[in-house]
């Protein structure tokens, strides 16, 4: 099921391909800034294929992290207005349409026990 952050999760105007990687601007699906220690990347799917988390990175505040580092980053806050850069080892053919689906799990640190799951998709049209 969608929530209100689903639609804006992947920023449509912040998708780039560079150096053999796909870069996505993504938003924090919560109303306030959170430390990266409570942010967990869930399933990443590009054109129906699950993308393994190895070699996927997240850049925030000018620092690039591998996904398995996030859980320890209690002091690195993702400000609520900032896009983070998610980099995936994927090359997309611009002449074909693509669909990217991302799931983010948040563990709001003042609501122990809550897992907030947001799934958002972005459809990219083929270049003409």
């Amino acid at each position: 099921m969608e929530n209100n952050f689903s639609r804006g999760l992947i920023c449509a105007d912040e998708v780039k391909s560079a150096h053999g990687r796909l870069e996505l601007g993504i938003r924090l699906p919560w109303y306030r800034s959170l430390p990266l220690s409570v942010v967990e990347l869930g399933e990443l799917v590009v054109d129906g294929q699950v993308v393994p988390h190895q070699n996927v990175s997240l850049e925030i505040n000018g620092h690039e992290y591998s996904l398995d580092q996030l859980g320890k980053l209690t002091g690195e806050f993702w400000y609520v207005l900032d896009s983070a850069r998610l980099r995936l080892p994927c090359v997309l053919d611009p002449w074909q349409p693509h669909t990217i689906t991302l799931t983010i799990n948040l563990y709001p640190p003042y609501i122990p026990g809550l897992t907030w799951v947001t799934r958002g998709s972005l459809a990219l049209e083929a270049k003409r």
């Binding site: 306030r32 430390p35 220690s37 409570v38 859980g71 209690t74 563990y107 640190p109 003042y110 609501i111 122990p112």
Partner: peptide, 9 residues
């Protein structure tokens, strides 16, 4: 303000 007492999961 926020009591982020579960900062470390």
């Amino acid at each position: 303000i926020n009591a982020d007492t579960a900062l470390c999961r």
